[in-house]
Each structure stands twice: as structure tokens, then as C-alpha cells.
Design a protein around this nucleic acid. Structure first.
Lengths: 136, 136
DNA sequence: TCTCAAATGCAACAATGATGCAAATGTATT
DNA sequence: AATACATTTGCATCATTGTTGCATTTGAGA
């Protein structure tokens, strides 16, 4: 699926900023921060445009946001595009990267009476395979 | 355990700001934001002092931070004080409250080869028991 | 090509995280 | 109880991020 098709499917205008963001996020194996995405984009966009593009893409479930700590926000393609289901996220303490763990499904949690869950976010922090190798 | 004792145990100076924060957090059944804590404090402290107090208390594992979305940060007593172990957090979409689910332990996730986990954060979003009742 | 809603760029503001430094304060010692 | 010193505070200041209003520009259908 191409970025343009995704935009069309969602009745979103094809603007170079949106198209660029989707393409960058689609290629990357890791979730990317706003700045990491900006660096890989061809055009130069105003911060507001960028911000609003993220918001739009997120609202249409084309990308999803992963918040590690406050002040550390990353974006990745959404499940509805990748068709890989709900998954845990991994944050590497060493290289600060964030990855969608497509093979690690979210487990079910039993809540006390009266509580109902709609969505569960799992963030696993540790050392990624890349950084582990470097220690050997 | 009193706030003063906690500070002493960690070799931290007993300042009214730190003492106040611990007391407020200790009493509350819910995790509280910076502003919610400030409102309940007697004294009036500079924002920087406040910020640095949180940082110190967090570093000494007296309180812990729960990040819901970026821009939504709450604080609660840490496990090392409550002795209740690692637990999931619950965020109520309706009333915006955050609670430590002491009875909901973190489950183990099987990671791909090469990845090692140090810590797992689980945030369950939904409707809390209070808000559910109100719908009846 | 024209039209119009939608998106962009710019200005501006709020909230939050963070640091340097002088003044004030907590605590151990005398 | 007074002193001394390291720690903490308050203030100024700055960077980053989230957010909104508005005039201009642009995408896409007629």
C-alpha cells in the first residue's frame, strides 16, 4: 500500500507533508520522533503544519503515538494499516529507540469489580537486540 | 510510616515542600498531577522547587511517575514505600483519574531473541468503578 | 479553468522541563 | 544556643512542545 492510497482511503487531501510523514514512518523499522521524521522529510514544513499532520493521521488511525516518558513521543504506523493487531512496545534504555513488538500481543488483565477496560498499553523497557550485541 | 521518617531513611533534608508532597501523595487513593498536589499543599512553592522536589523524590524511589499521554503526568507513592509490588496503572477516560492497581500485577512478556527487559509499564484505559456507577 | 473547502504558514501564547546563581534554610558540630 | 557548611530554595531565564486564530495558499472536484 502506498502513502497516497492510504490518504485517499481516508478521504484526506494528498499533501506533501502528510504523504512524506506516512512514507517515512512506513519504511522505518522503529517508531520515530517528530524530529527524526522531520530530518528524513524532503520538504521543510512549519512546526504547526507538522503538528497538525500528526494529529490528523492519528485521528484517522493511520499512525499511532507512543509516549515513553513525557517529552519522549514517537510515532509508528497503526495496526489498521499494518494489520498486525495490538502489540507491546519496546523502549531501549541504551539507544533510546522504540519498536513495535508485533510478535508480542497485549495480555489480558483482570480488573477489580466495576472497572472496565477499553485499551491497554504495554511499554517494555530494557536492552534491544542491537545494543545487546555491542556489549559482547 | 510518616513523611519525615521516609525523608530521614533516604538521608534527605526535611523540607516542608518535600514533606508536604509525600503527605499528600500518601493520603490520596489516586495518583495526582503536579497541580493537584500543589492545591493540597499548605505552603506556596516556586515551580522550580516543586519540580526539583519531584525529581529528588523520584530518584530516591519515594514516589513514581505515571505518564498517561504526553502532557498528563501523575505521581503516586512508590512500591518501595507501599510494599505492594509492581502493578498496572488504570486511567479513567471519563474522570481523568489515575490509580495504581495494586491487585493487578504486571504479566510477563516473552520477547524476541536478543531483547532483555528491565521494567514493564502497563497502562489500562477504560472506565473506573466510580464513573461506571454514575451511568446506572 | 474555476471554485471552495481544506491545509498551510505565521504569530502568538501556555505549559512544562531544565539550568545558573545568589540568598535562605536544615542539620551536624561545637 | 550559636556557628558553619552543604543543601535547598526562589528567581530569572531559556528551550521544547502543544495549541489556537487568521490570512494566504493549495488540492481536487465541477
Amino acid at each position: 500500500m502506498k502513502a497516497v492510497d492510504i490518504l485517499n482511503n481516508h478521504n484526506l487531501k494528498r499533501t506533501s507533508c502528510r504523504e512524506g510523514i506516512i512514507e517515512v514512518v512506513m519504511i522505518s523499522r522503529q517508531a520515530l520522533s517528530e524530529n527524526e521524521i522531520r530530518e528524513q522529510l524532503v520538504g521543510n514544513y512549519d512546526r504547526t503544519t507538522f503538528y497538525r499532520s500528526f494529529k490528523t493521521l492519528e485521528e484517522h488511525k493511520i499512525i499511532h503515538k507512543i509516549v515513553v516518558d513525557n517529552q519522549c513521543v514517537k510515532y509508528a504506523l497503526d495496526n489498521t494499516i499494518t494489520h498486525k493487531g495490538e502489540h507491546a512496545h519496546f523502549y531501549c534504555n541504551t539507544c533510546d529507540s522504540v519498536q513495535c513488538m508485533d510478535k508480542v500481543p497485549i495480555q489480558k488483565y483482570q480488573l477489580p469489580d466495576g472497572y472496565s477496560d477499553i485499551e491497554t498499553e504495554v511499554l517494555i523497557k530494557g536492552t534491544c537486540s542491537n545494543c545487546k550485541q555491542e556489549n559482547n
